Simulated scan of single mutants.
Amino acid sequence: MKIKLGVKTCLLFILTLFIWVPLWMLFTGSFMGGDELYKYIWSVLNQRESMASWTGFPRYPTLRHYVELLLDSPEFFVMFWNSCIQVIPVLLGQIGIAVPAAWAFARFEFKGKKLLFFIYMILMVLPFQVTMVSSYLVLYRLGFVDTHLALILPNIFSTFPVFIMVKFFKEVPKSLIEAAKLDGAGEFIIFTRIGIPIGSPGILSIITLGFLEYWNAIEQPLTFLVRRKELWPLPLYLPDISSDNAGAAFGASVIMMLPALLLFLYGQKYLEQGIAASGLKE
């Protein structure tokens, strides 16, 4: 048993290294000078057949790349603010729409409920590439193309948060709801005082999942914000960085990763509960 446990531990440690090595390269590369960084990745930048190399720590650490981004790159701040404008309203809108909708699917019986939920599930599994053309045509007719609303409105009505929250709300004991009704509580009070507190782990999990998805979105901004690059979010800042300024790309990647990483670490427990409730582990 001890030998098996040791082998499993070694395998997990090796797999962990494969995951963390790129992140370590990204972090250390953001503190390297331009000449030092170019020495390690010149073969990749110049598309040579030779292998790139790396070192564990920067030989001459510098904060120059972060200074350039935070003090001398106004376009970086514009794109960071664009990401905030496009992500935060989506999360708030999903809470305001998906949570009540999930409560209705979980607690009420109405005509066409199964069919409607089946349609929700079909929409959930459809990738963006399938609905891209139809979504563009609808947004174009509404005049929302090349505006922040082109990214906000479609994502607010995402069906995946509804699917997760239905699983949580179905776990609410019927005896608890019946007891609340006997005490004179109406449906709104039951939803706000019982449903939301019990479903709070699910709400936090959809916030975490949604933030990770929309904060790193690339395809939707490229599709719906073609003519107005000043509205582009932060993920589209990195492709515009040239090979001569690769250090800025490393620094921008670190800054972009920090909000998602901090939110993930905070909501990891709730995220696990959301994944377990949705059945994704299977």
Rank of each mutant, 00 (worst) to 15 (best):
M51K: 11
K167Y: 00
Q94D: 03
M32C: 03
A180P: 01
G247L: 04
A106Q: 04
G112H: 05
I122K: 02
E213G: 04
S73H: 03
G195V: 01
A106R: 02
K170A: 01
E272D: 12
W215L: 11
S158N: 14
E171G: 01
L236K: 12
E178M: 05
L12A: 15
E213A: 13
P22V: 13
F77L: 05
F157P: 01
P201Q: 09
E75V: 13
L92T: 11
L71Q: 10
M165Q: 08
D146A: 10
L151N: 14
L69I: 11
V254M: 10
F18E: 09
V254L: 12
I119F: 14
K174W: 02
M32A: 05
N46A: 09
A150C: 08
G195S: 05
I122V: 15
A217N: 15
F77K: 03
Y214R: 15
K181P: 00
L91V: 14
I3N: 07
L149N: 09
I41P: 00
W20S: 11
F105P: 01
F13G: 09
W103M: 01
I152D: 07
A248H: 03
E272A: 11
Y38A: 12
L5N: 13
I19E: 10
G251Q: 09
F76Y: 14
L263N: 06
I85P: 01
P22G: 10
Q273N: 07
E187I: 02
S53H: 09
S73R: 11
W215S: 12
M51Q: 12
P89D: 09
G195P: 00
L182G: 01
L45D: 04
S278Q: 07
S242H: 06
V254G: 06
K174V: 07
I156C: 04
L225K: 12
T9E: 11
H65S: 13
A98E: 07
G143L: 09
I3Q: 08
A179M: 05
M1A: 13
S83T: 15
I207L: 13
K4Q: 08
E272S: 10
D72E: 14
T28N: 06
M79P: 03
Y214C: 04
V130M: 08
P161T: 14
A277R: 05
T192P: 00
W103H: 03
L115Y: 07
L231R: 08
P61D: 05
G29R: 08
L69G: 04
V162C: 01
A185R: 05
E272Q: 13
W54C: 02
D35E: 15
Q86R: 14
L12F: 14
W54L: 06
I95W: 06
S83K: 05
G199R: 02
G34W: 01
L182F: 03
P197H: 09
L153G: 06
C84I: 15
E68R: 11
L26H: 05
L139G: 06
R64A: 08
A102D: 06
A179L: 04
D146H: 07
I14N: 03
T192M: 07
G186C: 04
S205N: 08
A276P: 00
A246W: 09
G186P: 00
I218A: 13
W103D: 02
G34T: 07
N82F: 05
F110S: 05
L92M: 14
V166A: 04
E230S: 08
G195H: 02
F163Y: 15
L149R: 04
G33Q: 10
L37I: 01
G29Q: 09
I218T: 15
L151P: 09
K181G: 00
I198D: 01
L45S: 08
G251K: 11
G112P: 03
A98T: 10
L204Q: 06
